[in-house]
């Protein structure tokens, strides 16, 4: 559904990402995993159309076979940092993408309100972000991303600000939310447990310059993803990542 071919990203002097290709299939959750600084966010930002202007990117992207220009209507992006606007309520924040996409305020609000219970935020429509717990804030951010109904979701380390327990709960919860309709999801993480728990496919990225060194499908159904079932894949991923750290 989304295909990237030969993506190269460079600053004036150095190459951050070199000749990277990847494709995302509809109904799949692909995790992009790699050491810090290898260029994961840069790839995702390019797909979201928000790569820093001082970086030059070269490469082709196709959506359903035709050339895509970013930012693209079919792509929703959730940055690595928390971007809930502190001056808007949770519901207003959630409406943002819809309103900017041209939906009328009332209609956007109805659509968002309908989703609040599923996202465990019922009764917090009028709360401001600093009145929510970390987990709730993260769910509000997911709500804002998912409600846009884009066919491709780009999630950059969505759990990095959460504590370990909240994180575990949210992983399964997010998989369930994402499965509610077919979409192609690219999720960046540096946590191989998270990646193997959630993804149908893991892309391993190495740095200097950033490139994909392995493409590992995980076919174990989510219900059967126990420690033992995933042990082998996790240890091979771990070896691969450790080798890449200089």
């Amino acid at each position: 559904m989304l295909e990237v071919r030969g993506l190269t990203i460079r600053t004036g002097a150095e190459t951050l990402v070199e000749d990277l290709s990847l494709s995302l299939a509809e109904g799949s959750l692909t995790c992009l995993i790699g050491p810090s600084g290898c260029g994961k966010s840069s790839v995702v930002k390019w797909l979201a159309g928000v790569l820093a202007p001082e970086l030059q990117a070269k490469g082709d992207a196709l959506i359903d076979g035709s050339t895509a220009i970013f930012p693209h209507r079919d792509i929703a992006y959730q940055p690595q940092q928390d971007t809930l606007f502190p001056w808007l309520t949770a519901a207003e924040n959630a409406c943002l993408g819809l309103e900017i996409g041209g939906m009328e305020r009332r209609a956007a609000r109805d659509r968002v309100d309908a989703l609040f219970p599923t996202f465990g935020l019922e009764g917090h429509e009028e709360s401001f972000p600093d009145q929510l717990s970390g987990g709730m804030r993260q769910r509000a951010a997911f709500l804002r991303t998912i409600v846009q109904d884009a066919r491709v979701l780009l999630l950059d380390e969505p759990f990095s600000a959460l504590d370990a327990v909240t994180r575990l709960c949210m992983q399964d919860w997010l998989v369930a939310r994402l499965a509610e309709r077919p979409r192609a999801v690219l999720m960046v993480t540096h946590d191989l447990y998270e990646a193997t728990q959630m993804a149908d496919r893991v892309l391993v990225m190495a740095g200097g310059p950033g490139r994909i060194i392995a493409d590992i499908p995980i076919s174990t159904p989510s219900a059967e993803r126990s420690e033992t079932a995933l042990a082998e894949i996790r240890s091979s991923l771990k070896l691969m990542l450790l080798k890449e750290i200089p």
Partner: peptide, 18 residues
Amino acid sequence: LPRAFRDQLVSMGATRWV
């Protein structure tokens, strides 16, 4: 305005004025 806030809006298709 934090860079990430700006990026968030740009990715949604916002114009400079928005």
